[in-house]
């Protein structure tokens, strides 16, 4: 993944016969988000588990000091406009990963770089609190499995969106209302209900309001943690559909966390498999599902498909 494996120079007497243009120059493929060696532990750690190969991949709790390693050297790239699926069993560290990126959790070590941010070369975990708030409000959106975490249940849907717009320094009431109705319309919430509080909505509708709130400031990156878990199958299909459509229409890149391979199959261009806080395997989604390389992924695919 680090470098392009094009050996165009091996064939330079035989340039592409079609237009003679060296397209290697126009092939720009810069990640939107680069994540490097993230670590998150609960506990103090010890000599055994702190050392690179000290702990078995089969556990996330140190047998010596009982520290839980929720993330262990997690690295990956996310490209503009793509959907990267993150799949793994319960406790594998998927939520920890997206929460860390959204600054809901504090990582112990590791780096992440956001190309959409003016400080592209600064590790976002080393930003000031004010800068982190800027990144959170302008450049990322988060959709939680539990709508209670993402929404104020007693505040109107339009008010929920306005809150996000205010955080990005919008003050004009007319603009905020117009934007709220545009966003709610995008997620198929009837405009007539924009002043209703989410607590009166069904689970599927709440998730849609959450998605529109996350998109309020047109971030280039959306983080979604098990957004369809717990919904009825038909409601699930609608929400997944919506996510797919938004990604096509808005070109927003997404990290989609799910333990459901069906969700991953439907949404993700590429997929990353996590286990015990580690990235076990990553690849194109169809390849991960049809030709998984790692023993664990093979088990996962065969037991869950």
């Amino acid at each position: 993944m680090e470098h392009l494996q094009i050996n165009i120079n091996d064939f330079d007497d035989e340039l592409s016969p079609f237009d003679g243009i060296d397209h290697t120059l126009t092939w720009k493929d810069e990640p939107l988000l680069k994540v490097r060696r993230l670590n998150k532990k609960y506990g103090s750690g010890c000599m055994l588990c702190e050392s690179e190969h000290g702990m078995s991949e089969k556990v996330n709790r140190c047998p010596n000091c009982a520290t839980v390693w929720a993330m262990r050297n997690v690295s990956f790239d996310l490209y503009p406009g793509e959907i990267l699926g993150i799949v793994g069993e319960s406790g594998s560290g998927k939520s920890t990963l997206v929460k860390s990126l959204y600054f809901d959790e504090v990582v112990d070590q590791g780096e992440a770089y956001l190309q959409a941010y003016e400080k592209q070369d600064t590790n976002i975990f080393e930003l000031s609190n004010q800068q982190k708030r800027f990144v959170r409000n302008h450049l990322m959106g988060m959709v939680y499995q539990n709508p209670l975490l993402g929404l104020r249940m007693n505040v109107s849907s339009s008010g929920n969106i306005a809150e996000k717009l205010l955080a990005a320094d919008h003050r004009h009431v007319g603009f905020m209302r117009a934007r709220a109705s545009e966003l709610l319309n995008q997620v198929e919430i009837p405009i007539s209900r924009m002043d209703e509080a989410p607590k009166r909505f069904s689970g599927g509708m709440q998730q849609r309001v959450q998605i529109s709130k996350a998109l309020a400031n047109r971030p280039p990156l959306l983080l979604l943690d098990e957004v369809t878990t717990g919904l009825d199958l038909s409601v699930q299909a609608k929400v997944l559909d919506l996510i797919r459509r938004l990604q096509r229409q808005l070109g927003v890149a997404m990290l989609v966390v799910s333990h459901d391979l069906g969700v991953i199959r439907m949404l993700a261009d590429r997929t990353m498999v996590m286990r015990n806080g580690r990235v076990i395997e990553q690849g194109m989604t169809d390849q991960i599902l049809e030709d998984p390389q790692h023993a664990y992924t093979q088990l996962l695919v065969h037991s869950l498909l």
């Binding site: 094009i6 064939f11 035989e14 340039l15 592409s16 237009d19 397209h23 290697t24 092939w27």
Partner: peptide, 8 residues
Amino acid sequence: DSAVWGKI
């Protein structure tokens, strides 16, 4: 023989 990169 790709259109974008030539041989790959």
